[in-house]
Amino acid sequence: MVSVKSLHGSAQLLLDVAGGVTRIAERTHRTIVREINPLNRLRDIAGVPSKEREGQTYRFIQSTMSSLQQGLHRSLDGFSADDEPTHSVHSEKVAAALNGVCGDHLEASNNPLAITMHFRNSQGAKLRPDSSSMGATFPNAGPRIVVLVHGLCLSHEYWKGHNEADLGIELQRAHGFTPLYLNYNTGRHISSNGRELSEQLQILVDTWPVNVEELLLIGHSMGGLVIRSACWYGSEPKLPWTQLVKKALYLGSPHHGAALAKAGHLLTFVMHKFRYASPFALAQHTSAGIKDLRYGNLLDDDWEGIDQDEFHLDIRKPVPLLAGTRHYFLAATIGDHPTDFSSTLVGDLLVRLDSAKGHHSDALKKLRIRPEDCRVFEKLNHLALLDNKVVHDQIVEWLV
């Protein structure tokens, strides 16, 4: 059964895509016309507003799209979100992927498909940030909490993995942690999610049924960067929750950027230099979260006032690991050994080893941890870190 919320959001996104395709066609058409007729280039130089030169056909199409969107909102906004049926695992995964690719647009356009940050329990139920619901949801709540934060285009469902090996449940059985799974819009800026996670962790601690003694944070891929961002924004005002984080683990996190994001940016930059290719540089339309992965931006200062589609050097502000916390890095490589050419070049297919291990040529950006707190797993890809038994055994051992 398709929910009204999903129908509304999908239709709105489809209209947005149609509008975007129309703009690409218009830019291409205008470029061709300008090249064929020299008078059009003279009008560009003269500064004639583009709206005055815009074709009536394109104006009509965009006006139609706008009218359809307004009608869509009026016809479906009256339905209550409380009446929505429970979404299937498949639909939640599709929504998570969409949020990763264009989540910032979904949020800015008030699309119902935009995911709002929230916690889930081990049964998949959403948690409300008030003490009464917490007590009812966790009647046997303990003083130790583990929060698992997924990566780009993923959701809480991916912690179960293909083998149904749930890391949160394993830690509950082995060490008594109560597992909570964060769901969030991975298309937003990492710093925006980090700041919000810091606020939600404080609410979580304040409303937990018993006094919290320890808060364990585990992040996969982008999730590790969101954790580091949250720790930064939580430590600046010295929020109490930061004092409870004794250990934090990062699974394949691109601390200094992801190779795929760098390659996508380079392709976009090159295409922008060619007049006919520029409208088709689709990477410029990807989410802010994906663009943050180019270097591993953690703070608002890393992207504010910067055109992230243009070429620029790594100007990130160095963000040290949270003081007083022991940090563990887990990395993967598809090669047979970390020193293999394939391992060095592509790492786990998405994140290179030096980035996952926090290495950097700039001493201020290098993340320093004990050698025994970093492990590289051979013959594993990026997603396999989520549900691999050997990886889970290492985490359980570290937390003794």
Rank of each mutant, 00 (worst) to 15 (best):
Y233V: 01
Y233T: 00
Y233K: 00
Y233P: 03
Y233M: 03
G234V: 00
S235N: 07
E236Y: 04
P237S: 00
L239T: 10
L239K: 07
P240D: 08
P240V: 02
W241D: 02
T242W: 04
T242Q: 02
T242G: 03
Q243V: 09
Q243I: 06
L244W: 01
V245R: 08
K247C: 12
L249E: 01
Y250P: 04
Y250D: 06
L251E: 07
G252C: 00
G252A: 02
S253V: 15
S253R: 00
P254Q: 00
H256E: 07
H256D: 03
G257V: 01
G257Q: 06
A258V: 06
A258L: 15
A259V: 14
L260G: 13
L260K: 13
A261S: 15
K262C: 08
K262M: 13
A263N: 13
G264Y: 00
G264D: 12
H265M: 08
H265A: 10
H265C: 15
H265L: 12
H265N: 09
L266W: 08
L267F: 09
T268I: 07
T268N: 13
V270W: 14
V270D: 07
M271R: 06
M271T: 03
K273N: 10
F274R: 03
R275D: 11
R275P: 11
Y276W: 12
A277E: 01
S278M: 09
S278P: 13
P279R: 15
P279M: 08
F280K: 03
A281S: 00
A281N: 05
A281H: 04
L282N: 09
Q284T: 09
Q284N: 12
H285Q: 11
T286D: 06
T286R: 01
S287T: 11
S287E: 07
A288C: 09
A288G: 11
A288D: 15
A288E: 12
G289Y: 02
I290N: 09
I290H: 14
K291E: 06
D292L: 04
R294G: 09
Y295T: 14
G296N: 08
G296F: 14
G296L: 04
N297Q: 11
N297R: 07
N297E: 02
N297T: 11
N297A: 15
L298W: 10
L298Q: 00
L299C: 10
D300Y: 15
D302M: 04
D302Q: 06
E304F: 15
G305M: 06
I306Y: 13
I306V: 09
D307T: 05
D307N: 09
D307E: 07
D309H: 12
F311T: 07
F311C: 12
F311Q: 05
